[in-house]
């Protein structure tokens, strides 16, 4: 009888130590999805880093081009080719970046079902806030892709004028003003995206500490 009592005590302690297996399973699943999502986010960040570098090179081409004289036809042609190449590279990176973020988002979105079922209210709140922040990031990054493509089109129109030798100074000047305006808008989107990313990162740390 004494032995049986001892068993009961030991079993109870073990159950207490291991906790509710269903909750843990959910938490593990959520973490698993976050990690899967993070691998795509890593690729997304890589794409964005490369995009930043290529954009820098493209801007250098513009700086070089406007330092030329209209009589330097060969050099102008060369710069226009370079500009076209960098535009293509940026488009490619944008596409990859967009795909990777979409995958990261899709993976992450799968946590919602489990998050809704979390019994611990605090833990549930944090998980749901994480979802909101990810949605905010998705919305902003979609805006970013759209605006970036518009930005590339504006640049392309500018180079198109030069290529066709349509040297309307006022049109060209306006085009560059529009490019700068577009660039400013993208900068604002990225700034806000980074704010959400930081909030997301902090919230995710909070969530991890709870598990």
């Amino acid at each position: 009888m004494k032995r049986l009592l001892a068993f009961a005590v030991v079993v109870s302690i073990i159950f207490l130590l291991t906790g509710c297996p269903t909750n843990e399973k959910r938490a593990a699943k959520i973490q698993e999805k976050i990690e899967e999502s993070a691998t795509f986010e890593n690729d997304f960040v890589d794409n964005q880093t490369k995009l930043y570098e290529v954009r820098g090179k493209a801007q250098q081409v513009y700086d070089d081009l406007i330092d030329l004289s209209i009589n330097d036809a060969d050099m102008i042609s060369q710069k226009l080719d370079e500009a076209a190449t960098y535009k293509e590279e940026q488009e490619k990176l944008l596409k990859q970046s967009e795909e990777n973020f979409q995958k990261a988002y899709d993976k992450f979105s799968k946590i919602e079902k489990n998050a809704q079922k979390i019994k611990d209210e605090n833990q549930k709140d944090v998980a749901l806030e994480l979802i909101t922040l990810m949605n905010n990031r998705k919305e902003l990054i979609d805006t970013f892709f759209e605006k970036y493509r518009d930005y590339l089109e504006l640049q392309s129109t500018f180079y198109g004028y030069i290529e066709k030798e349509e040297y309307r100074f006022d049109s060209l000047d306006k085009q560059i003003k529009d490019v700068n305006e577009s660039s400013k808008e993208i900068g604002e989107v990225i700034q806000q995206f980074n704010v959400y990313t930081e909030q997301y990162s902090n919230k995710r740390d909070d969530y991890y500490q709870m598990n």
Binding site: N42, V45, Y62, A104, Y167, F169
Partner: peptide, 30 residues
Amino acid sequence: ENIIGNSLDMLSFSSEPVEAFADSTLSQSI
């Protein structure tokens, strides 16, 4: 967490305007 942490690097984007076309050598020569 360390691996995940790297996935949330801040993105870089320079909004610095490019030189106005009106002030450029190319513009002047046109």
